[in-house]
Design a protein around this nucleic acid. Sequence first.
DNA 1: CGAGACTATGTCAGTAGCGACATAGTCCTC
DNA 2: GAGGACTATGTCGCTACTGACATAGTCTCG
Lengths: 181, 181
Amino acid sequence: MTSTLGFAILAVLARGDRTGYDLATAMRRPVGYFWTAGHSQIHAELQKLRASGLIGFRTEHGPGPQDKKVYRLTDDGMAALREWITEPPRERPERDELVLKTYASWLAEPELVRRLFADQLAAHETRLAEYEREERIFGGVPAAGDPRFGNYAALWCGLSYERHRVEWCRWMLARLSAAPA
Amino acid sequence: MTSTLGFAILAVLARGDRTGYDLATAMRRPVGYFWTAGHSQIHAELQKLRASGLIGFRTEHGPGPQDKKVYRLTDDGMAALREWITEPPRERPERDELVLKTYASWLAEPELVRRLFADQLAAHETRLAEYEREERIFGGVPAAGDPRFGNYAALWCGLSYERHRVEWCRWMLARLSAAPA
DNA sequence: CGAGACTATGTCAGTAGCGACATAGTCCTC
DNA sequence: GAGGACTATGTCGCTACTGACATAGTCTCG
């Protein structure tokens, strides 16, 4: 019963051996764009994955009170990861606080709602610009068997998502400006 | 320290008095499209909201072992809700299992990945058609002070989101069909 | 008049995830 | 050589959320 976080860790380890610290860094950026975890959660998960035999580690001398542990995928881990990838994703309930606020927005002062969406728009435009910058780094779309294809496809999704979000914020702002009773 | 679920409940109660059961129904559909909760969570939250004085209730005779409780917003509850609406939403980490699978997709058999995205595409197209049907029910965009504006704006976001998702699935399918090594 | 769906409230155990606390060596800069 | 950022691993308590269990009246259809 490996959790989704477990598979996220396996997916990172499939690209090369890492310490728990390295994994935590990857879980902030770039993997953090679609799956995040704090280091406390990662260390706990690593212990479970090891108990299941999906990962192993070698110790190396490093800073800190304990030696550092460099984790690697086992054959079992790789097999479990490969199997998981093509299984349909387990449904997660949508939880979008901004849409919830929107649902209740008829109760609030239009000017304050307008400000809320103006801020959101700015934030999404900033992110969009970042993603576009990152996209330019790739020289075309990597082939499907290339690890970089995973990065590119995830980035494409992020770009499309931010564009949708920007469009929605703009629509809201137009609605809130139009027809001032 | 009211939770987001608490405000979701207040937002529903702002549209009319409800029992816990009614709230659980609303949290499946239509509010469930952007914030869900099971009835066990709702009953617990209602007790907290009552302790904070944000809601009250009257008992009415009804089926079941206990009398039913019809909850209503208090003035404090309405004030807290109004204030919350225009505060910037607290950031929630993105957690998208499909994107995570995409990130790891370079490891899997292209044909199985293709099937995964074909299924996802079909599911999103179905949802999109549902939303489009719902959109047609509104005769134009309700005014910003109308409760129905909240429903419409949330639906607009859902429509835009599903279109983004459909586009992404189509892009992935095109990528996975093209250039079969 | 019986079966089954629906209305209605609640508890409890478990998992997922977050933030703070704890510890300590290394490396870089001033 | 002192201070601070970075590398590195781990624990603990709390909140959010899920799914199962528990109970029981009403309403509808055959």
